[in-house]
């Protein structure tokens, strides 16, 4: 464990809590893409199946349960509890175009071909594009509430910090995982235009307006 991965996990946890808190407090999921949240739940479910087969540390196990529980709780709030506020018209990204290619790629490019490892690889590829429905929705509505942009900033920062963690681990342990690194770079690049808008606008108190 290193400071980059620790702060990355913290940013990830903060993002999830910001979103859950926002939906719970405002009793509304307006502006939130339920599809991205479904993809995240799928990412954690397929990645954390190893909870039953291997033990890394109490921290690792605890965080996996937290990510699983919060992602399903978020889906419950969006699709059940506050489904009247779910914005169907703007949350229209075809997620099958993200799931199927990720699965196909995981079957082709993986570290070794067995059930858990292919699912882990699938979750890595899917996570790199899971935010697209949310970014697509923000671009369709042309704006995002500031709290949603804080959520996106924290979520984007988590994988950017993981890149620093991978550099650190390669430098100190000689350990690297090319699949996670390439997907992580793609994932972070997808946030770049958002990061630019966030830093130039939201931090100056303006609303996040995306060129529609």
């Amino acid at each position: 464990m290193n400071i980059f991965r620790l702060t990355g996990d913290l940013a990830h946890l903060i993002a999830i809590i910001i979103l859950l808190h926002k939906i719970w407090k405002s009793r509304s999921c307006a502006g939130i893409s339920g599809k991205s949240q479904v993809l995240f739940a799928l990412v954690y479910t397929t990645r954390y199946l190893d909870l039953v087969t291997s033990y890394v540390s109490i921290y690792n196990t605890f965080m996996k349960f937290v990510f699983l529980a919060t992602s399903y709780a978020t889906i419950y709030l969006i699709y059940v509890k506050f489904k009247a506020t779910y914005d169907h018209n703007h949350d229209t990204f075809r997620i099958e175009f993200l799931i199927l290619p990720s699965l196909a790629l995981a079957l082709l490019i993986n570290h070794y071909f067995n059930f858990l490892e292919v699912l882990w690889t699938f979750s890595i590829y899917l996570e790199s594009v899971a935010i697209l429905p949310q970014l697509f929705m923000v671009s369709k509505t042309g704006e995002a509430e500031s709290i949603t942009s804080h959520y996106l900033f924290a979520l984007g920062s988590y994988r950017a910090l993981y890149i620093l963690n991978w550099i650190y681990r390669y430098a100190t342990e000689g350990h690297y995982d090319l699949i996670a690194i390439v997907a992580g770079v793609v994932q972070t690049v997808l946030y770049c235009d958002f990061f630019y808008l966030y830093i130039t606008k939201v931090l100056k108190g303006k609303k996040l307006q995306l060129p529609a």
Binding site: H12, V56, Y112
Partner: peptide, 10 residues
């Protein structure tokens, strides 16, 4: 990538 290497990252 050794067969037994488990993924230790979240």
């Amino acid at each position: 990538f050794s067969n037994m290497e488990l993924h230790d990252e979240l």
